[in-house]
């Protein structure tokens, strides 16, 4: 029965999407921000490595279906950031990473957001989004695919009835396991903060 429920849920989701009154697309650029990756040690060893990457540069694209003050949004981000610093644990370390140089970070995320907009149908809007998604990180030697949750606040101003500009900030928190050797992996906590701005169109 559980396997049969899945297509029903998918159909229900698309039915809600079809009922959406307005469909919007948008694109933007992330011009400032911070990426933090914390590699966890075993049990009570704490953080073995805490890597900071900044400033963040990248792009974002989304597709939003809004109905009144609620909306669904699918968004893809591509972010890059140079290494700013690595804080190593004083007691523990990973032997394989002893002579490794940490590289700049590349993060690709795909998110599904639910949006709330109390100022819908007005020229100036302040929508708030929260959602879940997947995050792919490539910051050698840390490389993993993980689950993430995120939230974002945007300020949107419509220049015409259908074209608007927007800016805002987003925060994403992810978790994954990076492979150190073939038989050893370490937990990684990810935090991505970014300021973004862009343009939106109503279809």
């Amino acid at each position: 029965m559980k396997t049969r429920l899945f297509p029903v849920l998918v159909a229900l989701f698309f039915a809600v999407g079809m009922n959406a009154q307005v469909k919007n697309i948008g694109a933007g650029a992330a011009f400032f921000g911070d990426i933090r990756l914390a590699v966890q040690g075993a049990e009570d060893h704490g953080n073995l490595y805490v890597c900071s990457y900044r400033p963040v540069l990248g792009g974002t694209a989304y597709y939003e279906m809004s109905s009144g003050s609620a909306s669904h949004m699918f968004e893809i981000d591509y972010l890059t950031a140079p290494l700013a610093g690595v804080k190593e644990s004083e007691k523990y370390y990973i032997k394989e990473w002893e002579s490794v140089d940490f590289q700049p970070a590349k993060v690709i995320t795909g998110f599904y957001y639910i949006g709330i907009n109390n100022r819908s149908a007005q020229r100036f809007q302040l929508p708030f989004y929260f959602g879940v998604g997947l995050s792919y990180n490539d910051a050698a030697p840390i490389k993993f695919m993980g689950f993430a949750v995120g939230a974002k606040l945007r300020a949107r101003f419509y220049i015409t009835d259908r074209i608007g500009i927007w800016g805002g900030g987003s925060a994403k928190f992810g978790y994954g396991e990076t492979q150190v050797t073939a038989d050893m992996s370490k937990s990684v906590y990810q935090r991505v903060l970014a300021l973004e701005a862009g343009i939106t169109f109503s279809l």
């Binding site: 149908a121 007005q122 809007q125 939106t200």
Partner: peptide
């Protein structure tokens, strides 16, 4: 009903 500012108003 017209479409404006990202919704129907």
């Amino acid at each position: 009903d017209v479409q404006r500012f990202g919704s129907v108003s």
